[in-house]
Structure formats: C-alpha cells, structure tokens
Computed example of a mutant assay.
Amino acid sequence: MNRISLIAASVLALAAAACSSSTRAPTEPGVCHHVVQDGEEVRFNVLAEDVESIEFCAARLEEMRLNFLRLGGSTSEVMGAYQGQFIFIQREGVYFGQTLEGGRFFALARTGDGRLAIPGVIQREPAPEAAD
C-alpha cells in the first residue's frame, strides 16, 4: 500500500507543479489584451478598454487580425486575454481558456461567410423536400 500511496502523492505533486507554472491572463476589468508569445516570454498589449464582454473582446481581436491580413500580413491565428480568460482566434472559430497552456473550450464558430457566431445560433437552411 505504501508504494501506491507514494505514486499517488508524486502524481498529485506533479499536477500541482504544472498548474502553478501556467501563464495566467490579466484580470483588469473591461480591458482587452492582445497576447504575444515569443518563446518563453509572454506580453500583454492593451488593445481596447471599457469592453463589455469577452465576446466583444474576441470581435476586436478578429478585427485586428483582419486588418493585419489586409495590410499584407500572414498571421491567421491571434491570442488575446480578457478578465482572467485567454481568447484564441483560430481558423475554425474562437476558443476560451483559463491558462495559456491549458485546455480550451469552443465558444464561437465561423459562419459560411467567415463571420463569428455562437454555435447554437447558426441555422442551416433545410434541405428541399422531395416531390411525391
């Protein structure tokens, strides 16, 4: 039994160490940040202030991404942060996460024309009914 207890304690210690080294987002109320990761260094640049919600911050990051592309840039993925949450703008849509290195959950999907929408709101036109 001691060996199993030792292994369990080691696993818990490693998990706790991994959690403590996770990069956390700034928690300033209403401030939307653009996140730049250069190797081990992570910089938080203020993109907008007085932003109502994380979805509006994601929209501002998407706007910034599109402006960079129009200027000839090639960055297709952008990271941001809003009130302690990370925002990941990717080709498929937008993901949110508690830490930079941790898990992410799907928040906004891209519509057929590239806009962002809440996944449950997107409605597809029904297939035409077959004639009898």
Rank of each mutant, 00 (worst) to 15 (best):
81 A>I: 01
28 E>V: 00
46 V>N: 10
60 R>V: 05
108 L>D: 09
69 L>S: 15
71 L>C: 02
7 I>F: 07
20 S>N: 13
117 A>R: 10
8 A>G: 07
64 M>W: 05
116 L>F: 05
102 G>P: 01
14 L>M: 15
61 L>N: 04
122 I>A: 01
131 A>E: 15
63 E>T: 01
132 D>N: 15
12 L>A: 15
54 I>T: 15
124 R>E: 06
26 P>S: 06
48 A>R: 09
85 Q>K: 11
10 S>T: 10
12 L>T: 10
12 L>M: 04
75 T>Q: 11
99 T>N: 02
64 M>S: 13
38 D>Y: 10
15 A>V: 11
20 S>I: 06
14 L>E: 14
5 S>C: 09
45 N>W: 14
110 R>I: 03
111 T>S: 05
106 F>D: 10
75 T>A: 13
126 P>C: 05
109 A>Q: 06
115 R>T: 15
65 R>A: 11
11 V>Q: 12
78 V>G: 06
123 Q>H: 08
91 R>L: 11
68 F>N: 08
19 C>A: 13
92 E>R: 07
111 T>G: 07
86 F>G: 02
4 I>K: 07
21 S>F: 07
80 G>H: 01
102 G>N: 06
118 I>F: 02
64 M>Y: 04
25 A>S: 09
31 V>R: 05
67 N>D: 15
14 L>V: 08
108 L>V: 04
30 G>W: 13
4 I>L: 13
59 A>T: 04
32 C>G: 00
91 R>C: 06
91 R>T: 12
19 C>I: 03
95 Y>M: 11
70 R>T: 00
44 F>M: 06
81 A>E: 07
131 A>H: 14
108 L>K: 06
89 I>V: 01
105 F>C: 08
41 E>N: 15
11 V>F: 05
125 E>Y: 12
32 C>S: 02
74 S>R: 10
57 C>T: 04
86 F>K: 03
34 H>F: 10
9 A>M: 03
3 R>G: 05
78 V>T: 13
103 G>S: 03
79 M>L: 05
44 F>D: 07
4 I>V: 04
